[in-house]
Amino acid sequence: MEDYYQAINWNELEDQIDKATWEKLTEQFWLDTRIPLSNDLSDWRKFTAENKKVVEHVFGGLTLLDTVQSQDGMDALMKDIRTQHERAVLNNIQFMESVHAKSYSSIFSTLNTTKEIEAIFKWTHSNTYLQYKAQKINNIYHKGTPLEKKVASVFLETFLFYSGFYTPLYWLGHNKLANVGEIIKLILRDESVHGTYIGYKFQIGFKKLTDSEQESLKEWIYDLLYDLYANEEKYTHQLYDAVGWSDKVLVFLRYNANKALMNLGLEPLFPDTADDVDPVVMNGISTSTSNHDFFSQVGNGYLLGNVEPMTDSDYDFK
């Protein structure tokens, strides 16, 4: 029989997790245009120059990393798919990473002048530590093995974003920039699914390796994490020393580095746990719906379907 083009059949699944993840992601669909960011202007005008600078720079950094993920990361992972359904899920993830990157521009256009926005992107494109991690991850996407690329993706989604996420979660916990915080909570909810799904796909491939291949890959993974963390320490001090938050942000980073390793099915590296993280920030990670009035402020309650917040057990693939 001649070769034929195979239509995707969602009624015949090789991996049920593909369908479960697709349904979770589509239920969580959102767009930044539904969040009334202008309501945060009164808070923003009261911020000190140093606090404004931190917000601007962390969102510049997050924009860059989401751009890497949407433009290079998902394309790299799609080259190694196991099922047609997996490609569909990655297509969804790729689109939402673009939504995330665009959301930061919506924040900038609300809070900043054109001249300020130009300065933010100039800083983003020239910052040594930010460019280092972007280039490090992107190099793996283009030159790494299929499993190495999945590791890079999980480290980006579950670890490297969080030096930026700390700031809006902190302010949300202090009842400042509430609508900006809503966008971050929506992004966090997406990233929770992305990181666990891709980590699960990594675990499938990892289990097929020989013992010696597994040990070699684990050594590479932990070396990569050490390298990224060393750079992240410098980036964090540069961002946060002026406002005195660096030590608390580093605890948050180490906690999320452990979460990334756990997504890969590996042992945590750092002693930090959720109990060590600033409780105000940890509370912000909760992605439950805010009680916003639909006609004035739109929280994540407007989302399609009855979406429950992610928990640690939602994607227990072991």
Rank of each mutant, 00 (worst) to 15 (best):
V277E: 06
Q203K: 11
H237C: 09
L269R: 11
L217R: 08
E232G: 11
K218S: 05
R189Q: 10
L217G: 07
L188D: 04
L303S: 00
K218Q: 14
R189E: 09
F270Y: 15
V277D: 07
D247N: 13
F252Y: 15
P268K: 05
T287M: 12
L253W: 01
A242E: 15
S246C: 07
D227Y: 13
D227S: 14
P268N: 12
Q238C: 02
N231D: 11
P168H: 06
L304N: 09
Y235D: 10
E232A: 14
L239E: 08
A242P: 00
T196Q: 09
L228S: 08
L250M: 15
N258E: 10
Y302D: 07
Y197V: 11
I221D: 02
V298A: 11
L304T: 06
N179C: 02
Y255I: 06
Q214L: 04
N306W: 11
S296I: 13
S212M: 06
P268C: 12
T273R: 07
W171L: 12
G305P: 13
L253T: 02
V180G: 08
L224W: 12
N291C: 06
K201A: 02
Q214D: 10
L209S: 06
A260H: 06
L228N: 02
D211M: 10
R254E: 14
A274F: 03
A257E: 13
L266G: 10
I187P: 01
L177M: 14
V249N: 05
L169E: 00
L169C: 02
E233C: 13
K207F: 04
Y229D: 11
K248E: 15
Y229I: 13
F270L: 10
V249D: 01
S296E: 09
N291V: 04
I204F: 04
N258A: 09
E215Q: 15
D227E: 15
D278G: 01
K185H: 01
L209D: 04
Y197R: 06
F295D: 14
T287E: 12
P168N: 05
